[in-house]
Design a binder for these strands. Structure first.
Length: 196
DNA sequence: AAAACGATCTACT
DNA sequence: GTAGATCGTTTTG
């Protein structure tokens, strides 16, 4: 990891159609700086949420205190609590447009012992293979809601190794709430990261 | 003020 | 593959 570029992706990366950002975020590195060190994962599964026409989008029925970050500037985080856990999104498109990319799974790359501590669990395949699991592994909570991801502090995205996306192959229903989701969910390296 | 509802996870069969 | 836990947010009365 010492020789990789960890400089934060610029605002222009996020200020595009949410589907383009979703596809382009696959293979990128998600970095989290904590007091004990740096935690890094490769993004391997994402889902795009459009402001228009998608009932599954949190902003579909307008702005509320919870989803306010989605309406904010691109390049910020939208962290929301659900089922006693948290999930993290990358806010995309201009201010006033509430679209975001849900980060659904990571491949653990660095700071693995820190992730294992936070998850109270050793097995790599269970560490970050889910939107709430990866938030627990990286200590992402509401303190990071609307955090600016372009600063390169606390939480950010780096170039990583962009790869060609493909549609998710759903072997089981993983929290899919609408057929719409399946066309907006992308992954690499399998349905989710699975280590040997 | 009360009730319903998840962009989920885990355990268990 | 399915049930149950779980708790903040939103909706309803």
């Amino acid at each position: 990891m010492a020789h990789v570029d960890v400089s934060p992706l610029p605002r222009t990366f996020y200020d595009r159609d949410v589907r383009d950002v979703a596809r382009d975020s696959l293979g990128r590195f998600l970095l989290r700086a904590v007091p004990e060190g740096l935690i890094v994962g490769r993004i391997v599964e994402v889902e795009a949420y459009l402001s228009d026409g998608d009932p599954a989008c949190h902003a579909f029925r307008g702005r509320t205190p919870r989803n306010a970050a989605m309406f904010g500037p691109p390049g910020h985080a939208y962290v929301y609590p659900i089922h006693a856990r948290h999930c993290v999104n990358l806010v995309t498109e201009p201010v006033g447009t509430a679209s975001a990319v849900l980060v659904r799974a990571l491949e653990p790359l660095a700071g693995i012992e820190l992730m294992q501590q936070r998850r109270q669990l050793e097995k790599l395949t269970l560490l970050t293979s889910g939107p709430a699991r990866l938030c627990e592994a990286l200590s992402i909570n509401r303190e990071l809601n609307s955090w600016n991801l372009t600063l390169g502090e606390r939480l950010w995205l780096a170039a990583g190794e962009p790869v060609a996306p493909r549609r998710i192959e759903v072997s089981r229903r993983i929290g899919v709430t609408s057929a719409h989701d399946l066309e907006l969910r992308f992954c690499i390296g399998g349905c989710r990261f699975v280590s040997p």
